[in-house]
Every structure is written in structure tokens, then in C-alpha cells.
Design a protein around this nucleic acid. Structure first.
Ligand SMILES: [Mn+2]
Ligand SMILES: [Mn+2]
Ligand SMILES: [Zn+2]
Ligand SMILES: [Zn+2]
Lengths: 148, 148
DNA sequence: ATCTTTTTACAATATAGTTGCAAATACATA
DNA sequence: TATGTATTTGCAACTATATTGTAAAAAGAT
């Protein structure tokens, strides 16, 4: 999953948040700031730990992650391990479809895969969402390290 | 996901369980009996409800689902909604790979897809598990009913 | 029939996430 | 720049799903 990374300034992040109708607050800016560094989707726990110094409330973080997802700035996915993970959904790239992910069933490591790596053919009775390419894909298996 | 269904007698199920090294008990037979009727993977809650009359313990059911999964009789998957679902893994068909599933992000309905519907190409750096076709795929999106 | 190990049933605990609400803050407007 | 109102925060209580401890019961080997 190689793609030129966009890094936005705090002022740009604040403007981005406001552009969605949400208010720009410290916790929200902190979340976006952290996620734009991330190379894989992050769980609530991981984000909370990374933002430890800010000492922000668990519930506030949960609510912000959901709010930011609702307005389209983040994607929220479960990779087969009962944990929600969040990822910046970068509209600057017109990236409305999310790329597929590979999650290790042993160690839990998550890896982003190129969009091109999955070809879903749509048999007759399959959901229209598949024909229209409106779906997300999660792949699980043993990562190279755990398989060794 | 059309495939001739195998329906085993209670005696056959007991033998199947024993063949894995596990003891054949009432709860285990009941679980397999119920799952061999199922047309999609079932959650713990759904199985518990279906087996209500037997009045078996929640924790026992959880442990049995995991034990039966560990010995390879069931598959356990999370379809992106934070609920484990279990499905009979029918070795009689040499079905070691599981077929992909489609789960509606709105109503939660799960649909089995034919194995042939997914083609995962393996880019250079991708996990070996993908090259070896040792993985499971979960697709999420809006089902036809919810999209309408 | 007896013995040993596995399994059950009930209770306690854990983990991940959600909800209620009063106080604090953002930001539109004056 | 000050004021007013709706949004957001922080804390606590709560929920849903799943896991763990353990004594008693049952399975299956002998
Ligand atoms: Mn990714
Ligand atoms: Mn299926
Ligand atoms: Zn791994
Ligand atoms: Zn639906």
C-alpha cells in the first residue's frame, strides 16, 4: 500500500473538521494528527495509548472516532478480531473505496494491501453492492512471521 | 453457495466428534445437529436460542464452539460486526478452505458466496499465505434489501 | 463396576464499546 | 470583543459479548 502521504498542518486539520460541520476541538485534531502518521488502521486502544500525554477521555475518544467516521473523514473496520480499527479516509485522493487489509489470525498484525490485489467476480445472485464495487474486503490468515 | 448438504445421524455425529479426540456429549451433538441445518454461519446467540429447549449453559456453549473449532469441525469468523459466527466445516468435501461471505453493514444479514467469486492476486510483498491461498475473505457492504 | 480425565453448570471476571448528564467549550452573532 | 446557544467534553454508570475458575457430573477406558 504505497501512496504519497498527505500531511496536513494543524490549521488545515481544523479547517477540514469544520468543513464537515463538526466543531474543531483538541481531541479531534489530535486524533487526525495521529492517524495521518499511521501506516495501518489503528484501534481505539492504540490511539488512546498514543495520545496518552493529552490524557483524553476514553468515551470522548470513542465518540470522536464515530463522529469523524460518520462525516466521512475516517473509515471504521473490523478485521476479524473483534476490534474496531480506524483509518484516515483521504478524499484528497478521491479515495471513496477503501483498500483491502490482511490481518494475521495469530499476532493480529494488520497490513494494507493495494486496491488492485482483489478481484471479486459477481455471480448471478450476488448482492448488487458487489457488482457496483461498493464493498470492503478483509482477508485473514497467518502472516509471514507467524507462519515461519 | 449451493452444495449438496450432508445430513448426519446422531450416531454419525457422535462418531465424528470422537474421531477428533473429543468426547461425545449432549451439547456437542446438539450444536453439530443444529449447524448442519444452517444455511449461513450462526452466532453464539443464535445457536443458544435455537437450542433453548436443551437449556444448555452459555459458557459451555462458548467452550464447545471453540473446542469444535480447534479440532477442525467448525470455522469461526467475524464478519465485520463484532460477532463470532460458526459454520460446519465439512471435511467430507475436502473443504479445507472456507468460502467467502458477504455481510450487510446495515441489517447484519450474512450470505455465503461461491469460492469462485474471489480472485486475490498476490503482489510482490504480500503475505505468503495469500500466494498459498491460505486465507479467509469477508466482504461487507449493503445488501440488496437495505440498498433499496 | 471402577477409575481417570474431560466436560458441564454456575458464578465471577474481563474486554470492548455505549449512554446519561452536568459542566466546559466552540463558534455564530451582536 | 462580549453574549448566547448548541456542541462537546469528562466522568461515571451501564451494556453486550466473551472468557475464566472451580466443584460436581459424565464419558469412556480398564
Ligand atoms: Mn489500510
Ligand atoms: Mn458460508
Ligand atoms: Zn502474525
Ligand atoms: Zn441488509
Amino acid at each position: 500500500m504505497k501512496k504519497e502521504r498527505i500531511v496536513r498542518s494543524i490549521a488545515e486539520l481544523r479547517a477540514l473538521i469544520r468543513s464537515t460541520g463538526l466543531r474543531s476541538t483538541g481531541p479531534r485534531v489530535a486524533v487526525l494528527q495521529r492517524l495521518q502518521q499511521a501506516i495501518t488502521p489503528m484501534s481505539h486502544a492504540e490511539i488512546a495509548e498514543a495520545l496518552e500525554p493529552a490524557g483524553l477521555d476514553r468515551a470522548t475518544l470513542y465518540r470522536n472516532l464515530i463522529d469523524l467516521t460518520d462525516v466521512g473523514l475516517l473509515s471504521r473496520t473490523d478485521h476479524g478480531d473483534h476490534v474496531w480499527r480506524f483509518e484516515l479516509r483521504d478524499q484528497a485522493h478521491g479515495q471513496t473505496e477503501q483498500h483491502p487489509h490482511f490481518t494475521c489470525i495469530d499476532c493480529g498484525e494488520v497490513e494494507c494491501l493495494p486496491d488492485t490485489s482483489i478481484e471479486v467476480s459477481a455471480p448471478h445472485q450476488s448482492p448488487r453492492a458487489i457488482k457496483r464495487h461498493h464493498f470492503e474486503v478483509q482477508i485473514t490468515g497467518l502472516c509471514d512471521r507467524c507462519a515461519a
